[in-house]
Design a protein around this nucleic acid. Structure first.
Lengths: 360, 360
DNA sequence: AATTGTTGCGAAAACGGTTTCTCTAGGTGA
DNA sequence: TCACCTAGAGAAACCGTTTTCGCAACAATT
């Protein structure tokens, strides 16, 4: 039994007197406080003028009755619903959940709730959900995807409300947030270089992904900044453990002198497969070859042997930022159009050979 | 350019005439059709009596204006918002997203939208979100967790609306949905038996998890039904690849005659680690030892070598069922209290040694 | 021709709030 | 004592719908 303000008591009252779970309205509050509805409203919203005595009386009555204003009635008059829609086509993927959680948490703190719309790129489903969002009068839309170079099949011009894109291509003139793939890659490779590695290879996903090009660019930039030669060209394949494994085997097959002393992988799955192949060939990670990944997908990164140093895309923060920006947009604040690149953060574990892995 | 009814045209019109993105109200429709608001409402909702001429005129005007009724105004009079809240404490986990997607999709088809509330088991956040859901007058709540034996820190009695639990403990008298862990385990082990395996071990998660006991029970029941001896006791440890790996090594250390010919693992991560250990010791999977997992977490199950036969918990369906039941509850239909166990489905790949893995 | 029964539609009252405007007391200054 | 101002509170309009009720006009019965 915590002393939890007076809520529990009022609830009990409510329950006892009202079996059908009817909620107290402002009318009930006004009646019980012996004032008019308008006065009650003003008292509860700290507007208008009245004796502090009146105000406090009304507020205390409201508390006793467990009064909570009906957000929909409020929205009706304010033309503002304090709700957002989150449209995502990444139903099974790893991106949506952290983004959604970050968004939802940041919004909850501001009294804004988020509708989740899972569309599987089916046009009908998109249409259905979009219409539902329009009907429910959400104040804005966050559109989140699974790759930064594809725009969702959302008929944007038909939607008359502010939109922010996350982890998806951002049409011209729109506003979007994506992880800074190039910066993250650069940080990862620069860290390897700072540890004395000089022959740093890159194994990554399909060229058709925008992120692949950006991460490759980061790799190259870090190398050239350190005046290191580019070790081979980037090895491009599937985003899978299988491809990482194969690539590892290919590395192993080379004579020792031609092997890299570090590999920067395009994602954690590839890194995982690659490490498995190296381990199987008795090549030590990180002593013989250091490995870093990209994604910080914990379930992979912590399960590899040794645990994987990798680039964290700060997806929660991405969702948060997108939400806050959308809120600004809704409030009519000026927001510059274009795509923002949210900084990534290197998560150091053991696979890169650092002396002191982060503990958090 | 698809011929997409008349919508695009009306939208264009709206945009042209109304820069501030104001939507047509039923008043506008009535005015434009030369009728009263009440008649317009009746025409659009197929109620009341009027000439079909009048009705069609109104409907066509509404279409031209791109009229969509304001769901909040509607909710206000119907005392029904056609929204639900999804409360989950599984922010990073693997359960919430499929459940949420299944729920959201099934609800979208019925005109119901779902608010996502990510609570991290922080009481303040729970309170905040719960209050938001009450204020927004959601019709009901789905509470989803990450383990079936823990109830979320939700002060249920204080919430006056229908609630359904998913993948979480279900307080007495409440309604809940969980995967049928025992049934799934039984199916997995029975399948191994049908393939001729006779010495089937079980490596699983911490005893403190309810699911562990249930899966163990399924294992034992399948064995006893086939009159097979129980091969050792269930090996219990972490839900991790690491523990699977260790357990694999322990198996390998035994003389060949004492080894099992199949292992049923408590989840896919354990199975993955175990297979890695066996492979490293040159034990062939499935020829020497067959392995099946639990979860069908595709990212693991398809990446193991060989791909993992495992139990699919049908989480999307679980979310769907929970939503539909909640809708029944809201509609006042009689729903029996208690916890329902949703059947699992064995997903056959290669690691069990079946001749013909499923292709879907 | 007077009564009844339909038909087609609009007025008005909800739903639960907020906000603007108006009114009444009471206090102030001349 | 009177005009004037102000503080405090209520009346009413509004947000966008739905729904009940009432009222004409007309057709069908006596």
């Amino acid at each position: 039994m915590q002393s939890d303000s007076t809520k529990p008591i009022s609830r009990q009252k409510l329950k006892a007197s009202e079996p059908a779970a009817l909620r107290a309205t402002i009318k009930d509050v006004a009646l019980a406080a012996g004032v008019s509805v308008s006065t009650a409203s003003k008292a509860l919203n700290e507007r208008g003028r009245m004796t502090s005595e009146t105000r406090e009386k009304i507020q205390s009555v409201a508390r006793e009755l467990g009064f909570r204003p009906n957000a929909m009635a409020r929205a009706l008059v304010h033309q503002r619903s304090f709700t957002l829609g989150l449209l995502t086509n990444d139903t099974y993927g790893r991106f949506t959940l952290p983004i959604a959680a970050g968004l939802s948490a940041a919004m909850a703190d501001r009294g804004v709730s988020v509708f989740l719309c899972a569309i599987d790129d089916e046009p009908d489903r998109v249409r259905l959900n979009l219409e539902a969002m329009e009907d429910k009068r959400v104040d804005g839309l966050v559109v989140s995807g699974k790759r930064i170079d594809r725009v969702l099949p959302v008929d944007l011009p038909a939607v008359h409300m502010p939109v922010v894109y996350v982890n998806a291509a951002c049409p011209p003139g729109a506003i979007g947030f994506v992880p800074d793939d190039e910066g993250g890659a650069h940080a990862a490779v620069a860290h390897l270089i700072s540890l004395g590695r000089k022959r740093i290879a890159h194994v990554t996903g399909p060229r058709s992904f925008g992120a692949v090009g950006l991460r490759e660019k980061g790799w190259l930039r870090a190398l050239s900044e350190a005046a290191l030669p580019c070790f081979g060209t980037a090895l491009s394949g599937e985003w899978s453990e299988g491809f990482g494994y194969e690539s590892g085997q290919r590395l192993v097959a080379k004579p020792k002198a031609e092997r890299p002393d570090a590999v920067f992988c395009g994602n954690d799955q590839i890194a995982r497969g690659l490490i498995d192949a190296l381990t199987l060939a008795s090549i030590r990670v990180p002593e013989d070859i250091a490995v870093v990944g990209f994604d910080n997908w914990e379930i992979f990164a912590t399960a590899t042997r040794p645990p994987l140093t990798t680039v964290d895309m700060a997806l929660k923060e991405l969702g948060r930022q997108a939400g806050l920006t959308l809120l600004d947009l809704i409030d009519g604040k000026p927001v510059e159009a274009g795509q923002r690149r949210q900084p990534c953060r290197l998560k150091i574990r053991r696979s890169c050979g650092s002396e002191a892995p982060q503990t958090d």
